[in-house]
Nucleic acid binder design. Structure first.
Length: 561
RNA sequence: GCACCCGUAGCUCAGUGGAUUAGAGUAGCUGGCUUCGAACCAGUUGGUCGCAAGUUCGAAUCUUGCCGGGUGUACCA
């Protein structure tokens, strides 16, 4: 594709002396393999009719070995058909690792300690993992981080609930709780709910919880481990971290470094106080604020409260600089829900004021919220529907019902969940219909996994499947050509996903690819056909492309299912 | 009030740094398995791309104004 666009650019330069980059699109197959509207774009500058320009360009392109046919269509589109040989070459193209020297930080998932992961975390963890894979594919070194609260009111509420549950500040009683990370997390979350309710309803509890809030800060300040309440705090905090690890491993996403808020508050606080002296921050009603700017569409936000406590803003400043110190990132990608979009603009602007240039190195991607397509059905079957683990288990059960082989149920269930989340454009809300997501028909993870398994099964039956070289003699038949053409588009879909940080392009592509294969398969006999050698080569390319795409999405491509 | 995001077929979504005849899945209807895995394929029904104006040879896509939905708007995280 790049090669073709360069050829056209050169031709334009020779004809009209202007330097332009030529963008090619993939038109309907009947119009050719590539198309460009460059003539229409040039018409104004050159002062000739688009059609005339297109004719000249196409004339000059004739005779190139890669092109079978070049036509001018409509108002001045140039439609290009490649030779079969050139089409096959496109499938061989490998993208170059262009970001080898760059250091990336990508922060996502970000659950609070002492809480369970909900559906939003599930989505974001999957999305962030794929974003990281996409960036890794360009050769950059990627550091995955997750940032969350291990201090604050929610922790105090939880501590209160735990103490009630244990019958006092009795850390030794924690031994009676399950050893399993998921069950421990469940217990902690139950305590949080109880503590939360007590906070709302009981005056004495509210006072005690506010005391605990102070206590937790003190525990950190003095690194206190001796008191019973400190012991409960440190132990269950670790349980929380263990639970995160356990959950990420269920999802088969790479481990990330969890940066707790307690470790960034101090750094953030000192940076903001420095900034206050430099006039970056201002005092207002006893609080330290970053003043908004109507032009830049920033609103004013508090960084240090009038009581001297750091807000989330300051902790976020802390984590930015922690990551800068530890990884010296060139780019920092942050993924959060889109409700934080305005908030984060302010934090980024403040960070940039503290260290000029930082803002341009940071990029905030916001994801939509996960809604439930059929709320009624969900809640009756699942109870608490917002828990991530319930969604995972539900999908596993459904996949099991369908009758998949036991050893790949987890892979298929995860494939279903991941694909369902990833096929949507990032930023849009996701209507998660759980029944639909486990569907094995249509645009789904299991459909693609099945497609892969089927290709593997065909290859197993042919004696030519070990042949690594693509040998082409003669020309491609129509159904072969359509599939080869589609195979060549993988790299374009990947590039698009990387450049836009939009994984759904790969999803769309893989589904189209599988459909194209199924059409080919209906029409063309493979095994025992006189074109078996050629067709097997195409199936190999197909299987590999499918596997590469699925792996990029963090989905296992099974050989059997 | 102001700011940001969204509005495409009954439902779920692609397509939105302009382009040839708006596409998929799903639901409905029809046809195709003694044949390489039918978890499939083919055909069909279904759309004034929220509304209106503007820019252009050309707008789902860009601009403006409305309508509708969501979110955010200083001491919670």
């Amino acid at each position: 594709m790049k090669k073709t666009s360069e050829i056209i650019a050169r031709v334009i330069n020779e004809l009209f002396g202007s330097d332009t980059s030529v963008e090619l699109t993939r038109p309907e197959p009947q119009f050719g393999d590539f198309a460009t509207n460059i003539a229409l774009k040039l018409a104004k500058d050159i002062g000739k009719s688009p059609r005339e320009i297109a004719e000249k360009i196409s004339e000059k392109m004739q005779g190139n070995n890669d092109f079978k046919k070049i036509e001018v269509a409509g108002p001045g589109f140039i439609n290009i058909s490649l030779t079969d040989q050139a089409l096959v070459e496109l499938t061989q193209y490998k993208p170059v690792a262009s970001n080898q020297a760059l250091s990336y930080v990508i922060e996502y998932s970000c659950p609070n300690a002492f809480k369970e992961l909900h559906t939003g975390h599930l989505y974001q963890t999957i999305l962030g993992d794929v974003m990281a894979r996409l960036i890794e594919s360009t050769g950059a070194s990627v550091h995955r981080t997750s940032f969350g609260g291990d201090i604050g009111l929610h922790v105090a509420k939880c501590l209160y609930g735990m103490v009630q549950n244990l019958g006092g500040e009795l850390p030794q009683k924690l031994d009676d709780i399950s050893k399993a990370p998921m069950e421990r997390a469940y217990w902690i979350s139950q305590c949080y709910v109880a503590g939360s309710q007590a906070y709302e309803n009981e005056f004495a509890a509210k006072n005690q919880i506010e005391l605990y809030n102070q206590t937790v800060y003190k525990i950190h300040d003095s690194n206190e481990h001796g008191t019973p309440i400190a012991e409960i705090y440190w132990t269950t905090r670790q349980w929380s971290f263990d639970y995160f690890e356990a959950f990420y491993s269920i999802l088969h996403v790479d481990n990330m470094r969890y940066i707790p808020e307690s470790s960034t508050a101090e750094l953030g606080l000192s940076l903001v106080k420095d900034g206050l002296e430099k006039g970056i921050f201002k005092e207002s009603d006893g609080a330290v604020v970053f003043e908004g700017d109507l032009q830049k569409k920033l609103h004013t936000r508090v960084f240090i409260t009038s009581k001297g406590l750091p807000t989330y803003e300051t902790k976020d400043i802390g984590v930015i600089f922690t990551e800068k110190q530890d990884y010296n990132f060139d780019k920092r990608l942050l993924i959060t829900g889109n409700e934080q979009s305005e908030y984060m603009k302010v934090v980024f602007a403040a960070a940039d004021a503290l260290s000029p240039g930082l803002e341009s190195a940071m990029h905030h991607v916001t994801n939509g919220t996960v809604r439930f397509g059929d709320g009624k059905k969900m809640s009756s079957r699942l109870g608490n529907v917002s828990r991530a683990i319930d969604v995972v288990n539900f999908v596993k059960d459904r996949i099991r019902d369908i009758g998949s082989q036991a050893d790949i149920i987890d892979d298929v269930a995860l494939g279903a969940i991941k694909f369902e989340f990833l096929r949507h454009r990032v930023g849009n809300d996701i209507a998660f219909d759980i029944e639909e997501s486990v569907s094995i028909h249509g645009s789904s993870g299991p459909y693609l996994q099945y497609a892969h398994a089927r290709a593997c099964s065909i290859l197993e039956k042919s004696k030519y499947s070990e042949n690594p070289e693509f040998i082409m003699s003669g020309s491609l038949e129509e159904s072969e050509r359509s599939l080869v053409r589609k195979l060549g588009e993988y790299n374009e879909a990947l590039d698009k996903s990387v450049n836009e940080l939009m994984p759904h392009h790969i999803c769309t592509y893989l589904y189209e690819l599988a459909q194209e294969f199924n059409r080919f398969y209906e029409k063309s006999r493979i095994i025992d056909s006189d074109r078996e050698i050629l067709r097997i080569q195409i199936v190999i390319m197909y299987r590999d492309t499918l596997a590469r795409g699925l792996n990029m999405l963090g989905i296992v491509a099974p050989e059997k299912m």
